[in-house]
Each structure stands twice: as C-alpha cells, then as structure tokens.
C-alpha cells in the first residue's frame, strides 16, 4: 500500500490558541484510519485543513500527490466529506439534495442520475427520495448526509463524528455502511470520540489530545502501549477530587480518572489492588455498586498517555 494522504507538521492557530500543533500522520490507500480524541482535541480542525476549508498556519497536507497549499481544487476532487452536522437543505427532497451535491462535484446527465440512485440505495431511502429532508428522522438525515458525501465516489472519504446524537440502530447502519464503502476500495478517515466505533472500524488509529498526536498505530500496537496492564472499572456514586487523589496514591495504581459515575484505574496487578481500592473509596464516602476488570482498550491507552479519561 502507498500513502494517499500525507499530513506533515500541520499547525493551526486561532489567535493565541493553537488548535492543531505539529500533527503528522499518513493514511494508506484502502485503509480506514481513525482519529480518536476527546471533544476539543483538534480533530475537526485537522479535517478542515485536509478538506481545504481552513488554510494551515504551518506544515502541509498532500492528497494523492496534490498539496492543499497549491492545488486545493485537485485535492477537493479526491475527497468526499461527511461533516459532523447534517449539512443538507431541509426544504429540498433527498433526491434534490443528492443531485445538488453531485453537481457540485461535476456530475451531470445520466452519470448524475445513476449516482443519485446508487446513493439512495446506500442510504436505504429509495422509497422516500421525494420527501423533503426536513420530514426525515435524525437517523435518516444522517444516512442521506453520508450518501451526499460519497455519491461522486471519492478516493478518500473524510467522516467527522458521523454518529453523534443518533439512535443505536442508525449508528449500526452507519458503521456497516463505512465498512461496505471501505470494502469497495474507498479510503476512509474517521474521527470520533467513541473508542468502540474506532476499535470496530479502523485499521490504524491516531490518538489526539490538545492539538497533538500522542500515539499512532494499529489497535494491537496501541494496546501494547499499556501491555501487561489491566483496566479496573468501578461504578461509583460521586467521585470527588479528594477521592480521586486517594485512589491515585494507592500502591499498584498506575493512573486513575473518573467520569460520569465511573472510575477507571490502570494497574499491573488488578488482583492485589481491588481490596484496597474499594476500601479507599468507601472510606472517602463513595458508594461502590460494581467492579469489573477488563483487557486494555483505547480508553486505557488514552488514560495511560494523558492521565485522564477519553470523555473528559
């Protein structure tokens, strides 16, 4: 395989704030590349620079040999973009929306008609193609949103958190669609803050935080970062800062963080710390409802690398 997207030392600043800070990675043709990170990590800004919506303040992006700095139109022709928001015209029908986006990519005549028909099949909405998009459910809108990004059959598809705020059924449909598109040869850059999606879809993953790439590799390579460690997840009522501090100083605890009633602890010896961990929590007044020990995952990788949970 060869790199179809090459990102080198990419920088983007907004005033004094550096949203993307020297990001480098490459995407091989035909792979699904995941960009994982919490909200505000810089994923959308990175995608915006790849898709030529924002100009970089430093570094470069090259897509299939075309630089975003010198050949943005050529770059755009290689790409399909599925934005985080549903970017469709609500008073137009699904077919009208798709036809419009097809025309923006230079399709016309029978090629356009065929592409619209295929996109409607992909979205599973061929029976409702003449309805205005404003009448669709959230999941249906998301599906048309994706269809609009791929109907011109781009070589590289950029998907920015395409499953935010939708029901599980639509989410599964979208994930399966991404798998199918990749199976047909489309290269995909997929950003998300849901580690399960990234684990399910991606051949390689870059973990991003505070505008920087902190790790890149396959799922197994990233798991090896925390090789030999277990993840202890504790469902607990209200974890205060003092409780968290008490846990972090326990013997055997590598790192710990909490979010939304869940305490995550990274340890090399889960068996020896469980008793002390529960006792420490109880003594701090926290009520433990369940404790599970899991294999290392991207959550634990992120915790290990940053000392905080992915959903912080």
């Amino acid at each position: 395989m060869s790199s179809i997207v090459q990102v080198t030392d990419l920088v983007k600043r907004f005033g004094d704030f550096t949203a993307v800070d020297g990001v480098s990675f490459s995407i091989e043709e035909g792979e699904v590349f995941g960009l994982l990170g919490p909200n505000g990590a810089g994923k959308t800004t990175t995608i915006s620079m790849i898709s030529c919506l924002l100009g970089p303040d430093g570094g470069n992006v090259v897509v299939n040999g075309h630089s975003v700095k010198t050949a943005s139109t050529a770059v755009k022709r290689e790409l399909g973009v599925v934005p985080q928001e549903v970017a469709l015209y609500p008073t137009l029908s699904a077919a009208e929306n798709l036809a419009f986006w097809g025309r923006m990519y230079g399709l016309s005549g029978t090629a356009l008609k065929s592409a619209v028909a295929d996109a409607l099949v992909l979205a599973g909405l061929e029976d409702r193609s003449k309805e205005r998009v404003e009448k669709y459910s959230g999941g249906m809108k998301r599906r048309i949103n994706i269809a609009a990004g791929v109907l011109h059959k781009p070589r590289v598809l950029l998907m920015d958190e395409p499953t935010v705020g939708i029901d599980p059924q639509s989410r599964n449909h979208i994930l399966e669609t991404v798998k199918d598109l990749n199976a047909s040869g489309m290269t995909v850059l997929y950003t998300s803050h849901y580690m399960e999606e990234v684990e399910f879809l991606c051949d390689r993953i870059a973990i991003m935080d505070h505008g920087k790439i902190i790790a890149v590799g396959t799922l197994n390579e990233l798991r090896d970062v925390v090789g030999g460690m277990d993840v202890v997840s504790v469902s607990v009522s209200d974890v205060s800062d003092s409780t968290l501090s008490a846990v972090r100083v326990l013997a055997g605890v590598e790192s710990a963080d909490s979010t939304e009633g869940k305490l995550t602890v990274l340890t090399k010896s889960s068996g020896s710390i469980l008793g002390g961990l529960v006792a420490a929590l109880e003594s701090e007044g926290a009520h433990v409802t369940s404790v599970t020990v899991e294999e290392p995952n991207l959550e634990s990788v992120f915790l290990h690398l940053t000392g905080k949970s992915l959903r912080d």
């Binding site: 915006s48 898709s51 030529c52 919506l53 139109t73 755009k76 022709r77 790409l79 973009v81 934005p83 985080q84 928001e85 549903v86 970017a87 469709l88 015209y89 986006w101 923006m104 990519y105 230079g106 609009a148």
Partner: peptide, 14 residues
C-alpha cells in the same frame, strides 16, 4: 450555521 456553506466550499466549487 447549518454547515452547508462549508460543505459546498469543501467541494470543487470556488
């Protein structure tokens, strides 16, 4: 606001 403008600009449209 609805990002359709950004989507158009991400296409080859100038």
């Amino acid at each position: 606001r609805e990002q359709t403008l950004a989507r158009v600009l991400a296409s080859p449209a100038s």
